[in-house]
Structures are given as C-alpha cells and as structure tokens.
C-alpha cells in the first residue's frame, strides 16, 4: 500500500509499524511519526504544507526503485549466483 501511494506520487505519513518506515525517508517522500494523535497530526500538516512537486518527485523516485522489472532483475541476479 505504501509503495502504491509512492508510485502515485503521494507522500506517505506512517508510524513505525511493519515495513512502512523502511521506505519512507522522513521529510523527503513522507513523514515517519509516533503513535500519538499529535504526532500524526504534525505529520499530516507537514505533508500538506510542503512543496507538493518535490514530495511527488521524491515519492516517485522511491517507487521506481521497486518496480516489478527492478524486483525481477534482483531475483534473477541472485538466481544467476546460485547456478
């Protein structure tokens, strides 16, 4: 879901749950927040008040590192090492 949002050019506000925070560079393609309403609110406000074009570009840039052709190439490189 996080990758889908980034691929759509959207910054993501996330808590440190699961793998979401591995993909988010705080302040660049989104905001990593604490599990409190105040922190979540700050993250949403920051996302809304930032430069939308810069956030869009950063989000897309992260997503493009994880497109299916890139993922498949990573797997195939590993397979090649094992042969």
């Amino acid at each position: 879901m996080v990758l889908e949002a980034l691929a759509s050019g959207l910054p993501v506000v996330t808590t440190r749950v699961g793998s979401a925070s591995e993909l988010i560079a705080d302040g660049a393609n989104g905001h990593v927040v604490e599990r409190t309403p105040a922190s979540i609110r700050c993250g949403i406000e920051a996302a809304l008040s930032g430069d939308p074009q810069a956030a869009r570009s950063a989000a897309r840039s992260t997503a493009l590192e994880h497109t299916w052709d890139v993922v498949a190439a990573r797997y195939l490189a590993l397979f090649e090492e094992l042969r």
Binding site: E4, A5, L10, I44, P52, T67, W68
Partner: peptide
C-alpha cells in the same frame, strides 16, 4: 527485496487536498 509495484504514469492534473 521489497515487493514490487507497477510503473504507471501519473495523472497530469493536480491532486486534490485529500488525505487517504
């Protein structure tokens, strides 16, 4: 290796100010 995502073109029109 993180899971993959389709590479789709972005819509040209500006986004509405909506938080999903």
């Amino acid at each position: 290796v993180h899971t993959g995502v389709p590479n789709r073109d972005l819509p040209a029109r500006p986004r509405d100010r909506v938080a999903l």
